[in-house]
Nucleic acid binder design. Structure first.
Lengths: 223, 223
DNA sequence: CAAGGAAATTTGGTATACCAAATTCTCTTC
DNA sequence: GAAGAGAATTTGGTATACCAAATTTCCTTG
């Protein structure tokens, strides 16, 4: 199989199963059983579960089986709220500290997104959008900031999967990206912060829609 | 011995050893040896090392012994930069969302600090100051925010230990705390944000001093 | 028939043993 | 004597076996 360490591979596998709905929210994740299913031992499975817990996909409980977390809208909103603050900070710092090359990298992602918007899968687009955000966080030249931001981003896997929608927002998204890049190029911190905040506000709105749709069509079986 | 799970106890023990200088930066943390020293097995030691890695005290390397991280000033500064952003956000949100009771809790910590400033140990004071900050993060009513903030705070163990100094700042610190509480009570988001930012800016300045002093008196033996 | 308790099973926590990759030391050879 | 190759040792990764706490089920008793 693929790349990376064994625990990471297991985490990837479990993540897919959770996101695809094979392991609905509330399902206990018993390290014994799942380890046996995948033909690995409990030790790496244990670490994999910790990884998923850090991402918020499973919920650890003392002296109890971890369970698959429920994707409450509030949590996603909270995540985005924090992420927005970090990205706004990133934008401001990037205006001060980023090299032109780093800004070029951000622009490159935006360009690629614009080029491939119509040919790409929706999930691919979300992925691209996320790497746009990641690039901004990196351009702030603060590794702690980039790392923290990336951790929050990782927690959005679930929303990312759900939000395989909204292809219609094309013009607005591309426009916002362009605005952000332009502000960074101009080293205009105020504008950059505003555009980033606006972009993420819209992301939240999109996700609200997705959750509304999801809630109406199928009520979860498990509390 | 004390409370908590075994890995946490081990992590606490290792953390103390690192902060006390028994394990200077650059020292490899071999899970076999340390496990034997503490009379525990490698499994919980492994997890303990991961905890310390998450706190930034040790540095994991692929296919290599983890080593005790060097407390570079830049890293601490980066941490505080991010923490400041989160706390400023917390202050703003707290003005909107916090209950009066939650603000009372913050005020209570500030009061206790004022009461005990002269009798308390410097480390205790730092601890109190930190719980003041933690209380603000909690008052924002965003668990993700509180959790992320707490994680950053945990990374400051080292700086916390070093900054067992600056007792002279008494008036300024207490004044800033009072300003923050007052702004929160008045639900004045702009003022609250400004005061929080100012408070953390001063914290950074203090730590600059500590690092300067530390660098001049003893140059680290290990790269 | 219901309620309480005890025993068995389930499950995570911990210890130990084995394995593979990487480093280092030594022996050989030029 | 230096350099390179190989072997042994070091070290983290993984598997397995054992243990203790908690839950659940079933039996007993009122």
């Amino acid at each position: 199989m693929g790349e990376g360490t064994l625990p990471e591979q297991i985490a990837t596998r479990l993540r897919r199963d959770i996101l695809r709905g094979l392991l609905p929210p509330g399902t206990p994740v018993k390290e014994r059983d799942h380890a046996a299913d995948l033909g690995v031992s409990r030790t790496p499975m244990r670490e994999a579960i910790r990884i998923l817990a850090k991402e918020g996909l499973v919920q650890l409980r003392p002296a109890r089986s971890p369970i698959v977390a429920k994707p409450s809208f509030e949590e996603v909103a909270n995540n985005i709220e924090v992420m927005a603050a970090l990205e706004v900070l990133s934008a401001r710092l990037a205006c001060q500290r980023a090299s032109d090359a780093e800004i070029d990298e951000i622009a490159e992602v935006a360009d690629r997104m614009e080029r491939d918007y119509d040919t790409f899968d929706r999930l691919d687009l979300f992925e691209l959008d996320m790497s746009f955000h990641r690039a901004i966080a990196r351009a702030a030249n603060n590794p702690v900031l980039a790392e923290t931001h990336a951790a929050l981003l990782a927690r959005l896997w679930r929303a990312r999967y759900l939000s395989a929608s909204r292809k219609r927002a094309r013009e607005r998204v591309l426009r916002q990206h362009a605005d952000i890049v332009a502000a960074l190029r101009a080293r205009d911190a105020v504008a950059a912060q505003a555009h980033v905040q606006a972009h993420l506000d819209h992301l939240l709105v999109n996700i609200v829609d997705v959750f509304d749709a999801d809630d109406t069509e199928n009520t979860p079986a498990v509390e």
